[in-house]
Amino acid sequence: MSLFKEFLKGIWEKNPVLVLSLGLCPTLATSGSMRNAVGMGLSVIAVLTFSNIIISLIKSFVPSKIRIPCYIIVIAFLVTVVDMLIAGFAPELSKAIGLFIKLIVVNCIILGRAEAFAAKNNPLRAALDGLGMGIGFLIAISIIATIREVLGANKWFGLTVVPGWDPIGIMILPAGALLTFGLVMAVRNVLAQRRSR
């Protein structure tokens, strides 16, 4: 597969959230506003890209029986770095989604890509795969957050969209997240069916 395709596959064809349904918890929990969603998406891109590179570099001398704990240590180290950076530079964001930043450790996208891709490919390909998957995650979470924030709070990145319109409060609540996610997934299925025809 060409390098560009390696990068591109995470965005549509194998989108980690909408197609593989991995990493659901952060997608649902932090998509209440665009600011949280973008913060989460960028954190995942950073952790995913670097964990793929590191795991691809260490793959040859990690014994296969204890590879999963080793991967988890690498990921937990990166997550701690990201968590501390966010706590230092964006304390408000850290207060809002700090728990879910910590929980990137057990995000199945990261461990899944480590096991399925980084452990079998060279660092360049692993980095592109991580970057592509991360951007796919960011796109998916941004779509959901846009729908939720515009409908639920009449805002986008904190800016009012339609002045004087009363927003649908439930979209910003947990039920709205599940509803939006189900509908977005269904729309993606329809589009994929049309394409394959």
Partner: peptide, 19 residues
Amino acid sequence: PKPFRGMPIAFLTAALLAI
């Protein structure tokens, strides 16, 4: 309906439960 089979309908059900 076909596009809703599997995951999407599960999420819509979960949304109703959440409500």
